[in-house]
């Protein structure tokens, strides 16, 4: 999360000015470095922001910017001690949040409230009410409904919180089923799919396990502590170099259907209204799953053995349905 800083827009810079001014005035006297750290800018940027502020303010009744309407600082403090102290400020109010800003935080809080240890927090409700009142308009309607914790997630969450080793009965997408012993690092979710990141003792490496592929999970004693290799849950989905690359073709308009297969680095090109994407798959057993997603709109075009495997996978599925349903034609 910390690794991926999105570009700073002029709206971000305006929000910074709106937040910075009341902060500087509330602090009364604050060093440039401290103010810079609080707003995540460099000390030089902070000095230039203060410089800008001293040249602006509210125009007087005749439209002229007069000294008494401008921001004014203690210049000795600023120039000799690198300290910001306002002597005069036409604006000192803290801004409200926009409805959409409040709404984004509120929906984030809803997602948090599904977490173990958060749902009982009384301050969540108070905070929710405060955000709604602190917004400039009606909060844009948005809601997040996470699935409620089940026994399995409670077990895994307790193991994360108590640093306990887990024994998992785990099934992979290859259909392999094995017992794994794991020292937990974090419980993460992406779009309501839950993952345990942990140190796998049988592989002696950091691995991620989907909770819904655990047939069972049992705490078996104290775990060793491992630091996560990255804070970014998105890293979990990075493809490996030994992945199988398959090419798919579909109408460009239907691309959202395979959005969860497409990483930001995957090759994607357009020919007229068709899209051609190269998708990495962990193994050949997954081509049927991908082909089903494309059913009716597109297909895997390359390599030939992936096409053949997809067709065979679907024939097997039809045969199984047929064999067990004599009524089927």
């Amino acid at each position: 999360m910390a690794e991926r800083r999105p570009p700073i827009t002029s709206s971000d810079k305006l929000a910074l000015l709106l937040g910075l001014v009341p902060y500087l005035i509330d602090e009364v006297r604050v060093s440039v470095t401290e103010a810079a750290a609080q707003f995540e800018v460099s000390p030089e940027q902070m000095r230039s922001l203060v410089g800008y502020l001293t040249g602006t303010g509210e125009p007087g009744p005749d439209g002229l910017y007069l000294p008494q309407g401008l921001f004014d600082i203690d210049w000795d403090d600023f120039e000799q001690r690198d300290v910001i102290r306002f002597r005069q400020a036409p604006l000192d109010e803290k801004p409200r949040l926009s409805s959409r800003e409040a709404s984004a935080l509120l929906a984030g809080l809803q997602a948090l409230s599904a977490l173990p240890g958060f749902s009982e927090r009384a301050d969540l409700e108070r905070l929710t009410e405060k955000l709604a009142r602190g917004a400039s308009g009606e909060v844009a309607p948005m809601a997040v409904q996470f699935r409620t914790a089940d026994a399995l997630r409670e077990t895994v969450a307790a193991a994360v919180a108590g640093n306990e080793r887990l024994r998992l009965d785990y099934v992979t997408t290859r259909g392999d089923r094995a017992e794994r012993e794991v020292d937990p690092i974090r419980l993460e979710s992406v779009d309501d799919v839950w993952y345990l990141r942990g140190w796998c003792l049988s592989r002696d490496a950091e691995r991620t396990f989907r909770l819904d592929r655990m047939a069972s999970a049992v705490a078996i004693g104290p775990a060793e502590t491992h630091e996560p290799s990255t804070a970014d849950a998105g890293e979990l989905f990075r493809s490996d170099s030994d992945d199988l690359l398959v090419t798919v073709e579909l109408p460009a308009a239907s691309l959202p259907l395979i959005a969860d297969y497409l990483g930001p680095e995957d090759a994607l090109e357009y020919r007229a209204d068709r899209a051609i994407a190269r998708i990495p798959l962990a193994h050949l057993g997954l081509v049927g799953r991908l082909a089903t997603r494309l059913a009716g709109v597109g297909a895997i075009t390359e390599p030939p053995d992936a096409r053949a495997a997809a067709a065979q996978w679907a024939r097997d599925a039809l045969a199984a349905a047929d064999g067990q349903n004599p009524g089927e034609r």
Partner: peptide, 13 residues
């Protein structure tokens, strides 16, 4: 983006 801006405003506290 929206939550980042909200937090920037709340930094005023």
């Amino acid at each position: 983006e929206q939550s980042r801006r909200a937090l920037t405003k709340l930094k005023s506290f």
